[in-house]
Design a protein around this nucleic acid. Sequence first.
DNA 1: CCAGTCACTTGCATAATGATAGTGACAATG
DNA 2: CATTGTCACTATCATTATGCAAGTGACTGG
Lengths: 170, 170
Amino acid sequence: MRRKSLCELECPIARSLDLVGEAWTLLILRDALLGATRFQDFQERLGMPPSTLSRRLEQLTEQGLLERSVYEEKPVRERYQLTEKGADLAPVLLALSAWGNRWLAPDGPPLECVDPETGVLVEPVVVDRRTKRELSAGRVALRAGGGASRELKRKLPTQVLFGRASEVAP
Amino acid sequence: MRRKSLCELECPIARSLDLVGEAWTLLILRDALLGATRFQDFQERLGMPPSTLSRRLEQLTEQGLLERSVYEEKPVRERYQLTEKGADLAPVLLALSAWGNRWLAPDGPPLECVDPETGVLVEPVVVDRRTKRELSAGRVALRAGGGASRELKRKLPTQVLFGRASEVAP
DNA sequence: CCAGTCACTTGCATAATGATAGTGACAATG
DNA sequence: CATTGTCACTATCATTATGCAAGTGACTGG
């Protein structure tokens, strides 16, 4: 997926997907969040070809989402652990999981989220940190921010609603 | 990416990624949320080969994330509009965008989220709907839910923390 | 009639993936 | 000390997907 446009390079969604948008990547991170650290952990859980796994772990390490460290000296064995940057993708995975449970689980959620201490069911939603208002399609807008290039500011001079195209005639 | 294991098929994250995990898919949905509806809209914004775009739009339509409708009769022209299911991915994209702004934007966010009415900056975070407690790595656990197969319940008899492997020795 | 728009499709070279097998380092077992 | 086993890979090769470029068909507007 070779992307070129300047604006595209600046979009934080596109940037993120450059790191985690490839096949398997988010599943690897999911398993890392569930405790997998060794090559074989990942391979067994995911059932993916080792060649691909090897490449992905390499990439994730380069990008700073995982960190390699030796966990055994005699035959040198290494494990992969999440960095803070990598672990910070947890909310994204939770949002994705909530969507999957809402739309792809006709018989009820196969996996659900709970509070780790109390075991009480929790439901992930995306809100504004300050007001706690839910952010869903049509209730947020995007605009060029402090790190935007002149190019982007020109192309996006005003805020744009982030939501479904209204049913207005074209 | 052919996945096989039974558990894998039940994971809502894996299920979601089956629909939106391929290259370009989430970017197409992003642009749909930003108002793109026609084939050319998407092509111009994304700069992707039309063959791939065509396939993706087809898939997204089959999966019920987009809907085709005629918007011009004479030469029959169709547009692609988000369904509710598709638009409901907005929170996932917002979470991803927030991550990108946090970790991949050293010069400040190129794009930021605002309230569509007031224009006030908002910051997407994932919280529990009821308690509004922030859900980040280590503050949630997963467990088999109502729609889980017997197989899954056996494999995952108790809740599992969703977070970084603690720095405990292996 | 001719150029232009729009939404694709076709063909082909290149790249990525999936399946399977093999390697090298060591440990434990017999 | 030979054999088997574990772990983390690498190598090979067929299959699949993507990127690029060009072409098609339906029409409009001049």
